[in-house]
Amino acid sequence: MQGVVKVNSALNMRSGPGSNYGVIGTLRNNDKVEIIKEVDGAYEIRFNGKVGYASKSYITIVN
């Protein structure tokens, strides 16, 4: 499943599905991501070869 990031500035990509996990990357508006699955209000995603988590509130599914 594919998604597009929709933010005003940037969205943190984290090592786990919550803000208490470390930041492993930054997503920008209109970045395209692969959605692997939904976990606790976040999506597990793949972006630029990395797998991490981002809030589903800022990712629009575009299948």
Rank of each mutant, 00 (worst) to 15 (best):
Y53S: 01
S19L: 14
K50W: 06
R28L: 11
M13V: 15
G41F: 08
G41Q: 09
R46K: 11
K37M: 09
I59R: 00
Y58F: 13
N12G: 10
I24Q: 03
N8W: 09
G22S: 14
S19I: 13
N8L: 12
G49S: 06
K6A: 08
I35Q: 00
G18N: 12
K37A: 13
R14V: 07
K50V: 13
V7D: 03
G25R: 05
M1C: 15
V23L: 06
Y43S: 00
S57D: 15
S9G: 15
T60V: 15
V7I: 10
G16W: 03
Q2A: 10
A10S: 14
R46F: 11
I24A: 03
E44Q: 14
D31E: 06
N8P: 11
V23H: 04
Y21E: 10
T26C: 13
N30L: 10
G3R: 02
K37G: 15
N20A: 11
V62A: 08
S19K: 14
V7W: 05
S19D: 14
Y58T: 05
G18K: 06
N29C: 11
N30P: 02
N29Q: 07
M1L: 13
Y58W: 08
T26L: 13
K6T: 11
N63A: 13
G22K: 14
R28H: 13
A42C: 15
S9P: 05
L27M: 06
I36A: 02
G52P: 01
R28G: 06
G16M: 04
F47G: 02
G3L: 02
K6F: 07
G49H: 06
N63G: 13
Q2P: 09
L27C: 03
V33W: 02
I24E: 02
N29G: 07
Y53G: 00
G22P: 15
K56H: 03
M1Q: 11
T60C: 15
N48G: 10
S9F: 14
V62R: 05
S9Y: 12
K32I: 15
I24K: 02
P17K: 04
E34H: 10
G18H: 07
R28I: 09
I45E: 00
S15K: 08
V23K: 07
L11M: 10
G41A: 07
Q2R: 12
V62K: 06
V4Y: 07
Q2L: 14
N12C: 15
K32V: 15
Y21P: 03
Y21I: 03
I59W: 01
F47H: 09
L27T: 01
E38C: 10
K6H: 12
Y43A: 00
G49P: 00
M13S: 02
K32R: 13
M1T: 11
T60Q: 14
Y21S: 14
V39C: 10
Y21G: 09
M1F: 11
Y58A: 11
Y53C: 03
Q2K: 11
Y58P: 01
T26E: 09
N12D: 14
M13D: 02
I35D: 00
A10M: 14
S15I: 08
V5I: 07
S57G: 11
K6L: 08
A42P: 00
V62I: 13
I36L: 13
Q2N: 10
D31W: 05
K37F: 05
G25V: 09
G22D: 15
R46L: 12
V62M: 11
E34S: 08
Y21N: 08
G22E: 15
K50T: 10
T26H: 09
I45M: 03
S57K: 15
G16E: 05
G49R: 04
G41E: 10
V33Y: 01
R28N: 11
V62W: 08
G49K: 04
K37W: 06
A42T: 14
N8H: 13
I45T: 00
G16T: 06
S55Q: 11
Y58R: 05
L27V: 03
K6N: 11
V39R: 05
R14E: 03
I35P: 00
S57L: 14
G18C: 08
G3Y: 03
L11R: 07
R14K: 06
E38W: 04
Y21V: 04
E34G: 04
N30M: 10
D40W: 09
Y58L: 07
M13A: 04
S15L: 08
Q2F: 15
Q2T: 13
R14W: 15
G52K: 01
S9T: 13
T60M: 14
S57W: 13
N30K: 08
V51E: 06
P17Q: 04
A54D: 00
V33E: 00
N63S: 13
G3C: 08
N63D: 13
F47S: 04
D40T: 07
K56Y: 03
S57R: 14
G25H: 09
G22W: 10
N48A: 10
K32T: 12
E38Q: 07
G25Y: 08
R46T: 07
R28Y: 14
K56C: 07
I36E: 02
K50M: 13
N48F: 07
V23P: 04
G25C: 15
G3V: 03
D40F: 11
I45G: 00
G3D: 01
K6P: 01
D40P: 08
I61G: 03
A42N: 14
G49F: 04
N20Q: 13
Y21F: 12
G25K: 04
V23C: 08
V39H: 09
R46M: 11
T26Y: 10
I59P: 00
Y53V: 02
R46Q: 07
